[in-house]
Amino acid sequence: MRKQLCDALVLRAPRPEMVFLTGDLGFMALEPLQDAMQERFINAGVAEQNMVSVAAAMAREGLEAWVYSIAPFCYARPFEQIRNDVAFHNLPVKLIGNGGGYAYGVMGPTHHAIEDYGVLLTLPNMRAFIPVFDEDLDATIDRAGTVPNPAYVRLGRGEIPPGYAVPAYAPWRQLVHGGGRTVIAAGPIAGTYLSAFLSLPERLRPNFWVVCELPLEHNPMPAALLEQIRSAGSLCVIEEHVRRGGLGSEIALFMASQGIAPAAFHHFHARAHHFPTYGSQTFLRGQSGLDVETVLAVIGKE
């Protein structure tokens, strides 16, 4: 999604109030943005704590500050700066974390970002944007840039089956219609299930939704989705994020507040940093039971 990110930011670059800070990342990707923004493109060096506080101060001065790094260096290293300097003041700093989930899988555990939006959404005023498809980036950047609050954009690698027509961006989208279970996913991992779900017979084919914006207090679950959950009596949530504090918890709390209690609730999630070996994103998804076969064993069952 980096190319699409760069294109979307270049579109926005004519805004004189926009500044972009990178933690020394973006080689072979963000050069067009650097060219477009000139002095407003700032390589803040390998110093993420400083970079986030600098961005907070720039936002306090009325500038639209975007901060970019590999995801864990964007939210974990400078967490206190995000909390104290950005969130406590409700400053509209936009944090972009590249490589959400296990995208940097074989690079090792320091590069995994599997507790990012959960951790950040504990902070006041914070919004999270999780584009699913490469085609979502223009809308994602526009929406993240427009909210008057701190925001985190989790980038991944868009994955769609050949010939799939990506539906227009919306905070909630139903990607598959069927008569089977109800499934909700977050992020590009949703694309990995599309072929399998679409090939199921209608009675097993799930009603499959993706959500791109959290928390749900700003993006409530659609009525049609809630009705499907009531009708099916079960729900599966899939996310490349640890169990605690992620989408599963968010959905469960939202449903509880609405008096909805499906008899079955299945949560597919990243299984933390517990593996003895490392590998690609696909490998680590498999280790976590997020692979298509494992998910189908539940979703595709009578």
Binding site: Q49, A57, M58, R60, F88, H89
Partner: peptide, 22 residues
């Protein structure tokens, strides 16, 4: 800015100064 956790203020000041320059 709310300060009190040491080591934040100078970055906030630097960001403010650079913003004023821009």
């Amino acid at each position: 800015f709310a300060t009190g956790s040491l080591g934040h203020g100078l970055s906030l000041a630097a960001g403010t100064a650079l913003a004023l320059k821009l």
